[in-house]
Simulated scan of single mutants.
Amino acid sequence: MSAAEQADPAARWADGYCGAVTHLVRALAALPTVDPSTPQQASKTSSALLGSLVGGLDETIDGLQRLDAPPAPAADKARRDMVERFGDIRQRTQNVRQRIDDAHADPAVTRDALGDARATLDQIAGLNVLKGLQDVPDTDAASKRTPGCQQLTVPAAPK
């Protein structure tokens, strides 16, 4: 963190927020692939994928909860709302993972659970992880001054 960020409480808080959600972004970027070659492999690799996602959500939730008091009261509500959303998604993800693990590679149950896993991933893909910052003018402006937040808003380079 730069000296300017240390002197700017809003930027410091925004940087912490972005640091917390980076755990989820990294987990999404490094998700293992699902091997659909057999029901057993599909179950095993899907469970691993969902486990990675739960881990990223856990780290993000923990990081958001450990943030110091925000510079604006509205930012605290926005943070709590995001923690709740991430928590709900985490619970659904863990439930789907448990269903996959309990199915013991039963093709029909695995197929249904994989559909639920895809829906969960689609929900996360559509989630604006910076919403908690962007909903509050002070933290939205501060997020534009921090390198950690800027990294989260830069579009990915085409492959």
Rank of each mutant, 00 (worst) to 15 (best):
M1V: 11
M1E: 13
S2D: 14
A3E: 15
E5W: 11
E5I: 09
Q6F: 14
A7H: 12
P9I: 01
A10G: 07
A11W: 01
R12S: 13
R12N: 12
W13F: 10
D15P: 03
C18E: 02
G19N: 11
G19H: 04
G19S: 12
G19K: 03
T22D: 13
T22L: 13
T22Q: 14
R26E: 15
A27G: 04
A29D: 15
A30C: 09
A30G: 15
L31W: 07
D35M: 06
P39I: 01
P39R: 04
Q40V: 12
Q41P: 07
Q41G: 11
A42V: 08
K44Q: 15
T45D: 07
S46Y: 03
S46M: 06
A48Y: 10
L50N: 00
G51T: 10
L53V: 03
G56V: 00
L57R: 01
D58S: 09
T60H: 03
D62M: 11
D62N: 12
R66A: 15
L67K: 01
D68R: 12
P70G: 11
A75I: 00
K77D: 12
R79W: 03
R79V: 00
R80Q: 15
R80G: 09
V83F: 06
V83A: 08
V83I: 14
R85P: 01
F86C: 02
G87T: 02
D88S: 13
R90D: 02
Q91F: 12
Q91E: 15
Q91T: 14
T93I: 04
Q94M: 12
N95G: 11
R97S: 05
R97E: 04
Q98Y: 12
I100L: 14
I100V: 11
I100T: 02
D101L: 13
D101I: 07
A103V: 00
D106R: 05
V109R: 12
T110Y: 02
A113S: 08
L114A: 05
G115P: 05
D116Y: 08
R118Q: 15
A119T: 13
L121C: 05
L121E: 03
Q123G: 13
A125F: 10
G126K: 09
K131W: 13
L133Y: 02
L133G: 00
T139G: 03
T139L: 04
D140L: 11
S143R: 00
S143E: 05
K144F: 10
K144P: 06
T146H: 04
T146M: 05
T146W: 01
P147Q: 14
G148H: 10
C149L: 05
Q150V: 09
Q150F: 06
Q151R: 15
T153S: 14
P155D: 09
A157N: 10
P158M: 05
K159C: 06
